[in-house]
Amino acid sequence: MFNWFKKKKAKSNEREHVNDNNSYNFKWYEIGPDNPFNKRILDIRSFTLNMIATTSSREVAEKYDKLRSSMGDEYIGMRVNDSIVSHVNLVYPHNGTVLEGVVFKADSMDCKWDIYAYNDYFYFVRSWTGDLTFKAHFKITSDSLIVDAIEHAKADEIKDTINDVHFLLISHAMGRPFPHKVPDGITNEKEVAM
């Protein structure tokens, strides 16, 4: 059912590679039998499978490399800069197992997130910089994981924060294909892909 979402590793040099002639084959999937999601989605794989994220900053590369060995325990008790807490109700199926430690770790610079779980909090950290972006309180029951509060920057819209946390939990922590919400104001397909 999800075969068209499977990502194949693109072979490339260690640099950013972008199709110079901009001949991407973006395709919209309407709600229906060819789309397993209950929303209209844009397939941007022709872009994402041919683009490699890198940095020209030695400092950023060294920071990213150093963060690969982090277990995330340095974030325990840390607060998101200039933050507020918003109450939410995100519920996911779960087997009741305690979550503690690394939940997801970026394996290349293409992935911008590391996720940790400690003391009933998820810590969503930028993989390149180590910046704590979201901190989400969760509860585990015998069959569910419930996120009931998210600490985020005051400047962030709560609907965008909820969408980001939901996307990261499903796609990164649970490893399931899931489309990300297109940010408001972006209409160009290449901007969506970026």
Rank of each mutant, 00 (worst) to 15 (best):
Y118S: 10
F134R: 00
P33R: 13
N35D: 04
K66F: 15
R58M: 13
S70P: 12
N119R: 12
I31S: 00
V182F: 02
S83E: 03
N19W: 02
S69H: 13
T97A: 14
C111T: 09
V88A: 04
W28P: 02
Y75M: 00
G130A: 10
A173S: 14
V147T: 07
L169M: 11
Y123A: 00
K39F: 00
T48M: 01
D82I: 07
D43S: 08
Y121L: 01
S70A: 12
E62K: 13
E30Y: 06
M71K: 13
V103E: 11
E62Y: 14
L49Q: 15
E16R: 09
D184N: 15
I186R: 12
M78W: 01
N119W: 12
I170G: 01
V88Y: 06
F104P: 03
P177K: 01
R176E: 14
R15N: 05
I146D: 09
E16A: 05
P177D: 01
D184Q: 12
F178H: 03
K154M: 13
N35Q: 05
K112R: 10
Y75L: 01
Y29M: 07
N3R: 14
C111S: 06
S23P: 00
H172Q: 09
Y24R: 07
M78H: 03
F134G: 00
T48H: 04
E191P: 03
V98W: 08
K139M: 13
L49H: 15
N81W: 05
D131C: 04
D73V: 08
E189R: 08
E151D: 01
S70D: 14
E157P: 07
Y92F: 15
S69C: 09
C111F: 08
F167L: 01
T187P: 03
N19A: 06
A153Q: 13
I31Q: 02
R40K: 12
K63N: 15
G72E: 10
D34L: 10
G96I: 04
F178T: 02
E189W: 10
R45C: 06
S127L: 07
G175Y: 07
A136K: 02
D73E: 13
N89C: 07
Y118T: 11
R45G: 12
D65P: 04
S70Y: 12
D164Y: 00
H166Q: 01
F26D: 05
I140M: 10
V60L: 13
K6F: 09
H166V: 01
A155F: 14
E30K: 11
D65V: 08
S108D: 08
T55V: 04
F5K: 04
N25A: 06
H172C: 10
S12W: 10
E74P: 06
I150Q: 00
A10M: 12
E62L: 14
E30R: 07
E157I: 10
S46L: 04
I115N: 02
G77K: 03
K39H: 03
M174Q: 13
R40T: 09
I140N: 08
Y24A: 07
I158R: 11
V182G: 02
K159S: 14
I170T: 09
K63V: 12
F2K: 03
V103K: 04
R68G: 07
Y24D: 07
S69A: 13
I158D: 15
V85P: 00
E74D: 14
A106K: 04
F104T: 09
S70R: 10
A61D: 12
A10D: 11
D148W: 02
